[in-house]
Design a protein around this nucleic acid. Structure first.
Lengths: 352, 352
DNA sequence: ATTAAAAATACAATCGATTGTATTTTGTGT
DNA sequence: ACACAAAATACAATCGATTGTATTTTTAAT
């Protein structure tokens, strides 16, 4: 037995026991509650003993155990964030914006990726709730789901804010851009530049953003007296491969479109490359318009027209809204619209 | 008093008290410890009562409180990650790789940004330690520091792995690429393509990666009998603005260089744009080589030569190494080198 | 039926900090 | 010096789950 202890101390020395308030209390012949109050700078402790305790704490390398503190106070100062994919520029920028806001108030973010899987998203929600986060920020997976995990958040009473993808399962705060208007504007811009046969690369039709972009497209066609054609719409996950495949399909057709409106930049760029390799000139023969404002879009040749979604601002607003809820400033549930604008570049311009 | 309670229940209804193991125990006239064991599927509980308990738990919507559990077990299954900036493609991809690995073993990541400030980094380290993370992954800020916060990690006995930026403060695991060799190779490649006057845009000279890239550059010059000139090296933070300013400085000189080796892509692209706007043709008059493999580099015109750092793999290896340490598989401290390769594109090619 | 062994469950301490209440100490006025 | 209020500190319960030990119940063997 002693042998084992010896063994333990020799080989596991890094495992130093951290000092607790009780250790400090013992050293000073004082009660732990006083130590706790002193370290919290409570007026209930005499200045002199406060100083004594704080010095001893520093000397012993004390650091408050947040687990214990959080358990007692029922607050963790931690916010759970679930996004489809952290390495997409849009999302990492949104998160950057959130971080700016929450860190000012001493909050931390736990960031998780759903990879657009509803099942994983549900898992993550449960983990976050079990970890007692103070609130959840969620960009819902495009994959269809019964929304039961969303209801679990609601049942927990924890504040939640949705961004980018609107939540229809429960009444909650959504921070969005006006996908419909931007889609309308960009489609209209293509038409003004002479396009009459505009193909749309759309995303999962369960997701509100893709529904709205499609609606904007349809509406612009209608207003310009262009008949909407079902087979001009290609639905996919809008990954690089999807863009490439759809471009191939277009190349195989008798009649090529004179424009492509892709619901994201990744697919737009992929399609553009395939078309160009096949000898098609952009924007002369086909104009292309993307969506989501990836930084790459400025560097493609020709530069890709797209939509700036102000992701940093979106992150800030989302975080502010959540903190307001956490702090009890009960705001009426509503949707916040973040300003956005279409960016017209070479790829969609008229050429004479 | 009752009135206050009434008020509370009417207006704060979302605040539902979650069921605890004690609640379940009370309902079943059983002891909480048995409930705890049943939910952990311990063999010490009869199958019949286990089922009873699990059903009741489900019925009451029970969910384990990780705070309490973590406090007792002294493990949080949470890993703290500190990176300079989450929205840089390299880092978000590294994090993606980490997440793939740790989520398999039921771990979560707390992701923080240091913005390359040593002070903020130190703060974050303390917060993470106070939150009792099971380990820390760190890409050290380039800003100089006394390294005291690194020593605090060591003192805590918590496992730590460094990646991308080597830690010289303490002996620890580092996951790196061979910056020296890649810098050597790319400089040599420029020389083979006829360049004799190669300017280097370097980063903070405290950071090992920038030291090594500079060394590779110097070494390649020396091996090719080209005299190293101090004023060919421009040190900066390698942001967009830095690249632009340095390009302006170059334009103002009597004799322009015939190549630029930038220690990152952002500065390389910024410089390239300024030079091109001034009428200089790339790669005909000046060849440019970047570093870090930003996706944008493939889309600039001309496409930018760069170095692929395999960030996803780097994240995976880093996470594996940390988990090994957490799980007690004590590996000897060492540096892990992730394969990397130079990507030669249009911007650095010889033109005849 | 008796009893030892094995199985199942109950008890109680613990993790570390917080906080309402009780107690002791200090200070003031007379 | 005494009473009394105010200030400072101590006590003890609590947050919710875990776990070593003690106790009760069940099973099996004689």
């Amino acid at each position: 037995m002693y042998f084992v202890l010896l063994f333990y101390f020799i080989f596991a020395t890094p495992m130093k026991k951290k000092a607790t308030i009780h250790d400090i209390a013992r050293e000073l012949n004082i009660n732990a509650s006083t130590v706790s109050r002193a370290l919290a700078d409570s007026p209930r402790v005499k200045e002199k003993t406060k100083k004594l305790i704080q010095e001893k704490a520093a000397e012993m390398g004390y650091s408050r155990n947040h687990l214990a503190s959080n358990l007692r106070t029922q607050r963790t100062h931690t916010i759970g964030v679930i996004v489809p994919n952290i390495s997409r520029h849009f999302f990492s920028t949104v998160i950057g914006g959130m971080e700016e806001i929450v860190s000012e108030q001493g909050y931390n973010l736990i960031i998780c990726q759903s990879h657009d899987s509803a099942e994983r998203e549900a898992q993550l929600v449960d983990t976050l709730l079990a970890n007692q986060v103070d609130g959840i920020i969620l960009s819902i997976a495009t994959e269809q789901s019964d929304g039961s995990h969303i209801q679990r958040i609601e049942a927990s009473g924890k504040p939640v804010v949705f961004f980018d993808r609107e939540c229809k399962t429960i009444q909650g705060h959504n921070v969005l851009i006006d996908d419909f208007s931007r889609a309308y504007e960009l489609t209209d811009s293509l038409i003004q530049n002479g396009c009459r046969h505009i193909v749309h690369l759309g995303g999962n039709s369960e997701a509100s953003i893709y529904q709205d972009r499609l609606r904007g497209y349809k509406d612009a066609l209608e207003k310009n007296n262009i008949e909407f054609q079902e087979d001009w719409v290609f639905k996919s996950r809008l990954k690089q491969l999807d863009g490439q495949e759809i471009a191939q399909q277009l190349l195989a057709k008798d009649k090529m479109p004179d424009a492509i409106f892709s619901a994201n930049d990744v697919a737009a760029i992929a399609a553009m490359e395939v078309l160009q390799k096949a000898g098609i000139r952009i924007p002369e023969e086909i104009k292309v318009f993307g969506f989501s404002g990836e930084p790459i879009s400025a560097y493609t040749s020709p530069a890709l027209s797209t939509v700036n979604q102000n992701p940093n601002l979106m992150g800030q607003k989302t975080a502010e809204l959540l903190l307001d809820q956490i702090n009890g400033t009960q705001l009426p549930v509503h949707n916040t619209i973040i300003p956005s604008e279409i960016i017209i570049r070479q790829s969609s311009l008229k050429t004479d």
